[in-house]
Amino acid sequence: MSAFGHDLEFMLEAIWKVVVACLVLGAGLPAVFALGIRSLAWAHGGEAEAGDAAPNPWARVVAYVCFAVVLYGLIVGIMYVVATGHGNNISLEHVWPQIVSA
């Protein structure tokens, strides 16, 4: 196969992984964030939402869980930039991101 063909092949091999990762991080996390905002309005009740529902204090907990998930994503992102800038990588094996050598 020509080198040009190899380039195409490499691209097609990796593109699906990139698309899936991007959908989870780039669309999934914003959706969780939106869920957090919806929950805040739900917790507040009344005019905060269409439907004028009663305030629901538990929804505030849901909101904070959502924001915590998004914050985690942001921290992983920052750690990744820091790690790759130093030629390293990050590991999520212990949930909290850790810098490991590539």
């Binding site: 990796a14 992984k17 991007c22 991080l25 669309a27 996390l29 990744y80």
Partner: peptide
């Protein structure tokens, strides 16, 4: 969010 995800994921996969 999409830009950040695409930039970081691509660099992770060597693009």
């Amino acid at each position: 969010a999409s830009s950040a995800a695409v930039i970081l994921a691509s660099s992770h996969f060597g693009f």
